[in-house]
Design a protein around this nucleic acid. Structure first.
Lengths: 211, 211
DNA sequence: ATTTCAATACCAACCAGTTGGTATGTTTGT
DNA sequence: ACAAACATACCAACTGGTTGGTATTGAAAT
């Protein structure tokens, strides 16, 4: 496939940049072509429609973030629960710089398109759910270590639901950051999340008090 | 001013309905006029621009929700902390029916327009922040009852930050609901929030264990 | 090694429909 | 009479998408 993918990837990169800043609908095909430095012909050669580009961008985003988090330092923590806290701390550390840089493409897009473009919505859901799924095993392991059922029969909450809650807090934090014009409140919200999980596992094992 | 406001309010109602379902950018002025049953002339008589309509819609939303929550039954609970839990339970009970019915206009809009339309963004921020501000006094009172400083000097978190975190969880829950196509996960996330606050205040007053 | 061939990648110009917005009315209440 | 509330008709700019075409490729045929 030669050097193919050049234009395609430039368009995808442009989509991630522009959609995060302006939203999907407000980002026009021409905007994307200018940002990517390609012509409209090239755009519609690689993507059947703007909707298809949206779905492809969500998938690309999913792969990019998966690789980004797979290489993140929090994986070096041996203890599952410690790794979870390191993950949250890592997410908090990212909340710096411009809003459009730490914000989630999938969360931004799905709000706009969930009704009008179910295809894009599904891709966004996959991105968020797949990322949450990378946290569930550590949560489940931490629960098991403390004699809790990961399916929630002893606690009322499952490892999966806590993993998704983690993402809900982050997505909500992004909204507040956009509303307030800065990441400060987002950081505080992530700190609340960290405190919640600490309490959750501190109560579960009262023999070891909080450090 | 006679029966004035008829068209204006019909347009605002249309905006709240359509923007929640389709987003701000994807909702056209013509869409709004058709939904409201008015002509374009009437639209631009009442609103200087689509942007002005967006800001007015956010303000209208803020007033509507303020009135809605002011009359909600959770205010009948005497205890401040109990009232907070009743509020969260109330928010959870609302998560029924169609997505566009329980979703927050301000949170939906601010994601799209925070960069391109700061005027609308500011109105959305006011809506969210003002609503959070109605919770802070109860949280502060509950903290004081337990000897905690509402500014966070004893706990590391302030009443205001917890109030905003509450909204972050709700906003994030809405995103997950849209992504997953149903409110189930949103409910679970709100339950996590409730559990967090219970733990927060249970630990603070260990003499009274959870009910 | 060169030619052939089909596929892929890409481009400039164009199109029909839609966009937010306006100019110019007409109606209605006081 | 007068102003506010609304309606009709219209527009320039832009929208996503298409057209017909060229440039570049890799593999097969010669």
């Amino acid at each position: 496939m030669t050097r193919t993918g050049t234009a395609r990837e430039k368009i995808l990169a442009a989509a991630i940049k522009l959609v995060r800043a302006k939203g999907f609908t407000a980002t026009t095909v021409d905007d994307l072509c200018v940002e990517a430095g390609v012509t409209k012909g090239a755009f519609f050669h690689h993507f059947a429609s703007k909707e298809a580009l949206g779905a492809a961008a969500a998938e690309h985003w999913s792969k990019m973030t998966a690789a980004f988090f797979a290489e993140a330092p929090y994986h070096q923590v041996a203890d599952p629960l410690g790794r979870l806290f390191a993950y949250i701390q890592f997410r908090r550390d990212i909340l710096r710089g411009e809003l459009a840089e730490f914000t989630c493409l999938a969360g931004t897009m799905v709000q706009e398109v969930y009704a009008a473009h179910p295809v894009i919505g599904a891709a966004c859901n996959a991105s968020i759910s797949d990322h949450a799924a990378t946290l569930a095993p550590d949560i489940a392991a931490a629960m098991c270590e403390r004699g809790l059922d990961p399916d929630g029969s002893t606690t009322g909450w499952s490892a999966e639901s806590l993993a998704l809650h983690t993402q809900a807090v982050l997505q909500g934090a992004f909204i507040l950051a956009k509303a307030k014009g800065g990441p400060t409140i987002a950081e505080e919200s992530v700190e609340h999340l960290s405190r919640y999980i600490r309490l959750l596992f501190t109560v579960a094992e009262p023999s070891r008090s909080a450090p």
